[in-house]
Structures are given as C-alpha cells and as structure tokens.
Simulated assay, not measured.
Amino acid sequence: MTTVDAPRRRFGKVLRIPGVYAPQADTNLLAEAMRRENVAGMDVLDLCSGSGVLAAHASRLGAHASAVDISRRAVLTIRLNALLARQRVAVHRGDLLAALPGRTFDLIVSNPPYVPAPPAVLPSRGPARAWDAGPDGRVLLDRICETAPRALRPGGTLLLVHSAVSGPEASVRRLREAGLRCGVSDRAYVPLGPVMRERLTWLRERGLLGPGDDKEELVIIRAEKR
C-alpha cells in the first residue's frame, strides 16, 4: 500500500476555475509514478489534464509537455497554472487523442473521469463532467485503452490512474490485447470522497463497494509498448 501525500506539497499553489477537477490523491499518485519514468527530454502528454498540474510537473522534470482536455474551463486553467509554475506546456482542447491526430509520445499520463454514475450518458457541462463516467465508470477508460496504444512510440509508456471500482482488470486486459506489456504498478487507499459517499448506497447495490468499505483503492496501470 502506498501513502499519498497531500497534492499541495508537490504542486505548490494551484489555480482552479469552478467546474475543473482539483488535484487530489490520484493526481499525486500519478505524479510520483511519472517521476520514476525519468521523463527528461521525453515528449509527454497529459490526457484529460484538468488543472494541468501534471503537465506542468512533467515540464518541471525536463519533458516537452503537452496537455489535452475537452473542457474550455480546463484549458484556461491549464494555461494559467503553467504560467504560475513558469513552465512551458502546449495546451490543446479536444476529445481525447482526437485533439492531436497523428501525434505520438514517449509517455502518456491520464487521470480521466472514472467514477461510476447511474446515467449512461456523460454530462456535457457542470462539475460532474470532471468525474462521472457511466454506470461502470469505464466510458472514457475504454476509449483510452483503445486509442492510446497507437499514440505511443516504440518503447513508450502509458500511465493510467483510476479507482479499483472501475475495473482495473478490464484496463489491463484491453491494453494487453492491444499488444502492450501491462500491469498494476501502484496501489493506494484513500478515504471515500464526497461523490463516492453520496453514491454509497447505489455503489453497494451494484457490488462495487462492500458493506464495510470506507476507503477507495486507487491504482496505476502501467502499459509499455514493445
């Protein structure tokens, strides 16, 4: 089990426009995994960037950093936080990798929306857009597992963080089927956040959380292109 420090200890001051995902334990876990990749000189993409702190962190570590998010508010936030951190980040607005057609990267990091939610259709606005991901939490995870392998260079790596309630085994299976060498590289346990607590009865009814579960397991899926 990994202990996750408060994100502010790693990223310092972070600006956030309302409706944009704030850096949390999953962000910090992904940042630590990225640090171990020795990204200096790499082309790194922060996919579903949100506040942009991971892209700025990659730039701080010496990478050529790009960031993608579909939200206009997130794109503005990424730019502001890159300026605040005095880091160079190429910012793009669009739907996942469709925002950068034909581009390839040495490393892709992604903290997409992954919280299971009753509606099958993803919200197109409002704060829930930053975390809702369909009844099994996999609407965006499955798309990333399908498209990210093609955007990796030979020897490139995908680091994907999500909750254990969203099916890590499905992520691993899909990425292996795409030809990547893949497994869970990191795990951490954190208290249930307000969204999970609000949906606790529904999550237990679906068998995604047990009766006594009061913590959420986060996982990093690490997948390497041969």
Rank of each mutant, 00 (worst) to 15 (best):
A130D: 02
A120M: 03
V75H: 11
G41P: 05
G19C: 10
A82L: 06
C145H: 01
S166M: 06
R103I: 03
L200Y: 00
R204S: 08
I108L: 01
A164V: 05
A25D: 10
L159Q: 00
A151C: 00
P154C: 06
P194I: 10
L61C: 08
A188V: 11
D26I: 08
H64L: 14
H162Y: 04
Y21A: 08
L100E: 05
L47F: 03
H57F: 11
T77M: 07
R153S: 05
R10S: 14
R9L: 13
D43E: 13
L100G: 05
A58D: 02
L200N: 04
A25C: 04
G207F: 05
L97S: 02
R199T: 06
I221G: 01
P7N: 11
V39N: 02
R72T: 15
P18D: 06
L97W: 02
L84H: 13
G134Q: 02
L29I: 13
A170C: 12
R35L: 09
G134S: 01
R181N: 14
N111C: 12
G126W: 04
L80C: 14
G210L: 05
C145Y: 01
L15M: 15
A133T: 02
D136H: 06
L47S: 09
I17A: 11
M1L: 15
L159G: 03
G41E: 08
A98M: 11
E146F: 07
V39T: 10
R103E: 12
S124M: 14
A178I: 06
R176V: 14
G102K: 09
P149A: 05
G212V: 11
L54A: 10
L159S: 00
D46T: 03
R72G: 15
R86A: 12
P23A: 08
V172Y: 07
R222C: 11
A74M: 02
L54R: 13
T104I: 07
Y189F: 13
F11K: 11
Q24D: 15
E216V: 02
H64I: 14
N81H: 08
M34N: 02
L76C: 13
I220V: 14
V219F: 04
R35C: 08
R35E: 10
P135T: 00
E216C: 01
L84T: 15
L180S: 09
R181Y: 15
